[in-house]
Simulated scan of single mutants.
Amino acid sequence: MEFNGNAPIYIQVMDLLKAKISAGELNLGDKLPSVRDLSKELKVNPNTIQRAYQELERESLVFTQRGLGTFITEDSELIKSFKTKEINDLIKTFIEDVIKLGYDIEDVLEILKTYLNEEEINEHSGNK
């Protein structure tokens, strides 16, 4: 993983794990790698991974069982609302960015409709 200087590393680790949850690479109840294993894999200090896990636990996305490890929550509604929030954040950022470029909402909607129609055509014709 390449880290950037725009955010603390523990937040970037959190974002990585959240992305894996959103993408379904990590599922309800899955065990996360140990702090030590993930720190070796990502080449970061174990304290950084520990902090990321603690913050994810505060957000209720993971839970720790003493002596067993850290696991993804088993609360499907929480994961669903997390994913919805992630999507809404992406949409908000996208809309803010295109408005900064001088587009209005009607332009954005037309561009999205065109894009989605083209994607649907490509998907049905196997041109992906």
Rank of each mutant, 00 (worst) to 15 (best):
M1Q: 04
E2K: 06
F3S: 01
F3Y: 06
N4E: 09
N4H: 13
G5C: 04
G5H: 02
G5A: 11
N6D: 11
A7S: 13
A7E: 11
I9M: 01
I9F: 02
I9Q: 00
Q12C: 05
V13I: 13
M14H: 06
M14V: 04
D15A: 13
K20I: 02
I21W: 01
S22M: 11
A23Y: 06
E25S: 04
N27E: 07
L28P: 05
D30S: 07
K31E: 03
K31C: 07
L32G: 09
P33G: 08
S34T: 15
S34L: 00
S34D: 03
V35N: 06
R36K: 14
D37F: 10
L38M: 11
S39P: 10
S39K: 04
E41D: 12
L42T: 08
P46G: 03
T48L: 03
A52H: 05
Y53L: 06
Y53V: 03
Y53N: 05
E55A: 12
L56V: 05
L56M: 14
E57L: 07
E59F: 08
S60D: 13
S60F: 10
L61D: 00
T64P: 07
Q65C: 07
G67K: 00
G67C: 01
T73A: 02
S76A: 15
L78S: 04
L78A: 05
K80S: 14
K80F: 13
K83Q: 04
K83C: 08
T84E: 14
K85V: 13
I87H: 10
I87E: 14
D89Q: 12
D89M: 07
L90Y: 14
K92N: 14
K92F: 13
K92Q: 12
T93E: 10
I95V: 15
D97T: 15
D97G: 12
D97Q: 09
I99N: 03
L101S: 12
G102M: 00
Y103E: 02
Y103N: 00
Y103L: 11
E106L: 15
L109S: 07
I111S: 10
L112F: 12
Y115L: 11
Y115K: 01
Y115E: 01
Y115S: 08
N117H: 09
E118R: 15
E120N: 10
E120W: 12
I121R: 09
N122M: 04
N122W: 04
G126A: 03
N127K: 14
N127A: 08
K128N: 08
